[in-house]
Simulated scan of single mutants.
Amino acid sequence: MTTNITRRDALSLFGGAAAFAALGGLAACSGASGEKKYKIGVLQLTEHDALDAANAGLVQALDDSGISYTIDQQNAQNDQSACQTIAQKLVNDGDDLILAIATPAAQAVAGATTEIPIVGTAITDFAASGLVTSNDAPGGNVTGTSDLTPVAEQFDLLMQLLPNAKTVGVLYCTAESNSDVQVQMAEAAAKERNLTVTRYSVSNSNEIQQVVESMVGKVDACYAPTDNTIAAGMATVSMVANENKLPVICGEKGMVDNGGLATYGIDYNKLGYKAGEMAVKILKGESKPADMPIETLDASECTLTTNEETAKAVGIDLSVIQ
């Protein structure tokens, strides 16, 4: 898993000029003499594969653009109060632009400033989360890229793997507004496929094991959308689910890599890269957040990911996937 480190942390850990040189690609990009050096702050909600990949994509886009910048990487470790504190810090620092990774991070930053441009990524629905007036015309200082997943296609995948399934438990965290959107989409997709859905919610990561255990024997499969709390706790989810032969269809690749059965989902590195490209346009004065529609990845960019070890554990034949 990627460990985020700020330029300031690096200098204190490794000492002066040596650390600056070692971390040049992450902390600062060199530019032509006299070129403006942009000050960028990053607030990532928590550490898990999808958000880490989005972060890496953001930084890569900044590097590829050739702009000169310094970057302050901050991670809230899935703590809402920490999000508020970090957001205020980045605003007080006078950053030229703030990159927010995940919905709660973006909400915290948007609540702290209406002036500094904010580019978000790994956010399911900007409008539904109150971040923009509309996804087509944001109208304020926030824009970015949405990680709205192909929920219908993920349920098609579930039906291919479990053609006799009748009941599905949807696992999510009630503290995340992005999950509400996906749960509703899951319920609609299930209804179209004559599946009965039961909601299984947690309010924090400490409840995951007990809630997954409560599914056993009551549902034929579990669906876990791109919920940050669940994604960060997939080791716990898969431990319980796989031991009890409960297949888990996931919202994104990282969750499958950490023990889920399968997904048909987006590439978070590409999603972050696209957000980084938007940030560069804003910094260069070529565009304003208010006029930049929320962008998504095309369905053709979604990929199938399966976990063979998990398939063996839960007794599922992956060869049936078409």
Rank of each mutant, 00 (worst) to 15 (best):
I40T: 08
T229P: 01
V212K: 08
L304I: 13
T229K: 04
G144E: 01
A100R: 09
I230A: 07
Q322A: 10
A290D: 11
K191F: 01
A188C: 08
G233L: 12
T3A: 12
N258F: 08
A82R: 15
L318A: 06
T306F: 06
Q160V: 05
L58Q: 08
A110E: 08
T2R: 12
Q84A: 13
V181D: 04
D220W: 12
E187R: 14
V132M: 10
A275S: 11
A299F: 05
N141F: 08
L23D: 06
D72Q: 06
L43Y: 06
T133A: 08
A82T: 15
K191C: 00
A189Q: 08
A279T: 07
T226R: 10
S214T: 06
V237D: 08
T85W: 07
F155W: 06
D49P: 00
L161T: 05
G265E: 10
V212Q: 11
K274S: 03
P225L: 10
V237N: 05
T143L: 05
K284N: 14
C222I: 15
Y200L: 05
T3N: 14
T113K: 09
A22P: 05
E47F: 04
T303N: 12
L51I: 12
D227L: 12
F14K: 11
S205A: 15
C250E: 02
I116W: 11
M234R: 09
A235S: 15
K39N: 15
G15C: 03
C83T: 04
T174A: 14
